[in-house]
Write a protein that binds this DNA or RNA. Sequence first.
DNA 1: CGCCTATTTGATCTGATTCAAACAATGTGG
DNA 2: CCACATTGTTTGAATCAGATCAAATAGGCG
Lengths: 260, 260
Amino acid sequence: MTSAAAGPEHKALVKKLRSIAPLSDEETRHLLELPLHVRQLRPGTDIATEGDRPHVSCLVTEGFLCRFKFTAEGRRQIFSFHIPGDIPDLQSLALELMDHSVGALTPAKVAFIPHESLRQLMSACPRIAQVLWRDTLIDAAVFREWMLGIGRRTSVTRIAHLLCELFVRLRAVDLAGDDECDMPVTQAELGDALGLSTVHVNRSLQELRRRRLIRLNAGILTILDWPGLEELGEFDPTYLHLKGAVRKKLGPDRTSSLWT
Amino acid sequence: MTSAAAGPEHKALVKKLRSIAPLSDEETRHLLELPLHVRQLRPGTDIATEGDRPHVSCLVTEGFLCRFKFTAEGRRQIFSFHIPGDIPDLQSLALELMDHSVGALTPAKVAFIPHESLRQLMSACPRIAQVLWRDTLIDAAVFREWMLGIGRRTSVTRIAHLLCELFVRLRAVDLAGDDECDMPVTQAELGDALGLSTVHVNRSLQELRRRRLIRLNAGILTILDWPGLEELGEFDPTYLHLKGAVRKKLGPDRTSSLWT
DNA sequence: CGCCTATTTGATCTGATTCAAACAATGTGG
DNA sequence: CCACATTGTTTGAATCAGATCAAATAGGCG
């Protein structure tokens, strides 16, 4: 657990917020002055648990975290995956009581920010408050999209959609190549996120491979056919509300398209 | 379409926000000065559609609205139900582009508030901005809870949970009696909200009636056994983040309990 | 090597869907 | 006030997507 002042952790945060909305120089300066307490997490470590009343929020710097909750019968639902730049428990700033848990999926590095400092930041820069609000609203948009999938889409479409989403989000913070990205998530975890059993996730992934849309091996996802995957997954990135620059990546066989 | 200044519409809003967080007199005064444009809606009318860029938000005054989105194959998922006091499209204040639709489920009365006025209000009363943020976060908490249900709970539990939620929310704004409330929602709509077919909703409702937990007739829900329904539905209202006063209603056969 | 965790395969079962039709309630116009 | 259209609820039967159970295989890694 180290204390950092304007280290690489801050850059992840700035990059993420810039993917949501533009930032002025002054706002950026304020962000860089946030006190961060960096900590390493091993997989399975929870940084907040249902029932907690946290006084810090955590910025992901390396690795994947997720938010989740258990059924009375002990079945788990994962609500979201979080990648570097995300602040998965930002909501605890406005909602005292945690109604779900947040934990590391992989070895991860996170930086804790005292709520105190965030409140100061927000009153100094109301625009940043806006951006943080926006961020939680985008969170909610992702929840809705997952809900639509779990409630109404077939297993194969659901998985394809999730892979599209993660790929696009990773690209938005420069953590994906042209056609591949890390995907250090087990099939059991995918199942918990998609409302499917592990066995069925496995079979649906095989279907995606059979159709030559993706490769998925040793935690690396390779997109073999982006337009195909997007179509099968019914993926339209609008709900991610990303700023212009990091838009949809087009497939190699599609010329710059007419629709915008 | 009328223009109102400090009518009954404002009271619904104040009551709702008070159920989330306390308000000072000055804050209340500011709220009462919001310009509202009241409008009557017939069932099925959409007040915002996926792709829109609204410049007003709408406060529900009478009736039920819902938010929803369609799959590529035309299957609908309802994300939330909205009752008087709610501002279902508050998010359009911070996220320009609608990524889903909002429509009336029943005959309804809504009051439109220009984004402009809301922005002024928020800069005059930063605390109200806080409360509005809180409200959207509670929205997101409800999405998560629904996700958990759709992904991991059985159909009967899912329905029971939803009925509990609506009853508690209606009580929080004084729209429910001790053991009954309006429930003007068709079984098809329940299905779209719960990720179930109409037929299966019908059968699961029969199960709830067979167990003597509820009566549901002509749009009126009667709770016959609250503790039983709560247990079957695995319902714990924490995620609604309601302020103390409007807590869980206890069953008639349970003395004031030990846990708090 | 042996342990542990993750993936894969096969066989079987079931909760929920789909399709189809009957029924009930409400409203509309003649 | 009745015939008829409309919308919602209920029932039955067939089918299916996905779950469950069980076991085999494949990778790391100390």
